[in-house]
Design a protein around this nucleic acid. Sequence first.
DNA 1: CGCCTCCTGACCAAAGAGGTCAGGAAAGTC
DNA 2: GACTTTCCTGACCTCTTTGGTCAGGAGGCG
Lengths: 151, 151
Amino acid sequence: MRVSAKADYAVRAAAELAAADDDPVKGEKLADAQDIPLQFLEHILLELKHAGIVRARRGAKGGYWLAKPAEEVTIADIVRAVEGPIAHVQSSPPESIEYRGNAEHLQEVWIAVRASLRTVLEHVTLADLVAGQLPSEVSALAAQPDAWVAR
Amino acid sequence: MRVSAKADYAVRAAAELAAADDDPVKGEKLADAQDIPLQFLEHILLELKHAGIVRARRGAKGGYWLAKPAEEVTIADIVRAVEGPIAHVQSSPPESIEYRGNAEHLQEVWIAVRASLRTVLEHVTLADLVAGQLPSEVSALAAQPDAWVAR
DNA sequence: CGCCTCCTGACCAAAGAGGTCAGGAAAGTC
DNA sequence: GACTTTCCTGACCTCTTTGGTCAGGAGGCG
């Protein structure tokens, strides 16, 4: 139930790319801007490239840029590219698990967990993120004062 | 962003305890009912005991039971007891991370992620779970047809 | 040609996941 | 008091993941 460093780094780097608007940005510049270890970041960018989220060119004037408009890339896309499926239980998707006895309805709970994650992650695009204009459902969640307190 | 076997097992065992209603249940019976490796389960139950969720007695007629009424124990309580804090990013709570540059608003996204998880996990009690009567916000999420399809 | 930058695989240490094993300590029964 | 039952605890184990680093290769550009 946690967000890995890799996913956090990936989203941050993608946000920088979204702001650069189709201009190739060097890995080193991304690493500097977001304070990410360069070599680790390049592995992450490679995964994003294989997932079709990012494109790249080598050589002088090379770098990385988004494969699609920033409005069409969601946080969920990026998280899935580097962490795999969201909200799997014991490495299986919740809809494929059979629960017995008094735990029978636990499946619905994990399905609801996944659905609630999706309503956040699939609705925030990179364009929203860099503009600071999150969708209303999301900013409403973040606006609750006790969303900011630890438990 | 996944649910560990430990958390899944813990909730399932707790559901059995909730259904037994203050009668001590032996570890072996719980393990059988939910198909969980016994020795692993006893470690989990110990963690739940240390967290004050479960109580236990040894010897003949011993076993485990809930320390509080099933209406007062939420899935979030159990998940936190065995997995630690929900939705930490890089092992830190989202409210304590400082984001720079174009990722500045990412903090709000992770806060919203945590808030959305809480609206599910903190509102479903063990009593709801065994009765199959989930709170309306939660069953509404699970009722959407595309909540059941993988992506 | 030479430089720049991405690309890739190998490696590494520490931690976590998912268990198993062996023995000890309380609670009840005879 | 002995015996059985059941929880309690720590040690251990294998495999994978996490969060990286290192070394070298391959493609672009001037």
